[in-house]
Amino acid sequence: MSVLILAEHDGQQLNPGVYRAVSAARFWELPVHLLVTGGNTANIAELAAAIAGVQRVICLDSTHLVHPLAEDVANIIAVLGQQYRVILAAHGAFSKNILPRAAALLDVAMISDVLEIKADNTYVRSIYAGSVHSIIRSIDPIQVLTVHGSSFPVANSGGHAEIINLDVPAPIDKTRWLSENHSQSEHPALNSASVVVAGGRSLGSAENFEALLAPLAAKLGAAMGATRAAVDAGYAPNEMQVGQTGIVVAPELYIAIGVSGAVQHTFGMKDSKLIVAINQDPDAPIFQVADYGLVADLFEAVPALAAAIIQREKDQL
């Protein structure tokens, strides 16, 4: 019996979550296998084989897997899965699409977004937008789960896993991939940035959102994030949404600007190492999770903050 990890990649790089999933997988003290599907996975397989703690990289290459569909990948997992004790992946849009489908094909339950592994079938996860923690035990013979990225450390490199190639089952052909749009941003990717500058509805317009937050983000090398209210108002694209129904981040520093701090938002950022909040309402709930809170008008405080950081840079020259 072994642990199978579904590995997400973009053809060039493994998703950073894969390295965390490997750390989570080591809990079982069983051999760890990594499943890589794609068009030509040779270079990804090399990267995967170099992760410490991985024994085997299983590659399935086919033109129809260049843009992997849930139907096909779940089918592959269901075929392989009978031999595994655990099937897991880092929690994200990719795994959320595929693993529940695979679990149902295997007739087992799934445990989403595990925060902590307590025993080989017992987990801590959050419910009600992170406002309650629940300990659950699965009675199924195969454990299928996704793990909450920031709860598990990044696995080291230095591994020498074997790489094997398997035959690919025929495409399921219920769904056709048409296109994909990835936002082109000069800022770092939200889910791996070490600093995030996030804004809310109070920015008032897409122009303000950009004009106030982008210079600060640029100075800090930060990714930009947003509340759902800001996204719904059209101030920021939806892939910037942080929260229960958006992306979950845990950077070194999270600066929440004009964000009220609804639980649906804080779910996505309260694991950040350091949280700074700027809000004009002293009673805003965001201050309950902030390490440093500044009660101020953001239209004054944010430009002042950016200016002070620039001034400091000049002073140091």
């Binding site: 300990i135 659950i136 902030a290």
Partner: peptide, 27 residues
């Protein structure tokens, strides 16, 4: 059900934060 809930609890709370009076103090 295949999943048994053993216990629920409050999530760990962050340690209380500090209010700063100005941008200068924040920095």
């Amino acid at each position: 059900p295949r999943l048994q809930q053993l216990k629920v609890s409050e999530p760990p709370v962050r340690k209380p934060g500090i209010r700063v009076a100005s941008v200068t103090e924040l920095l």
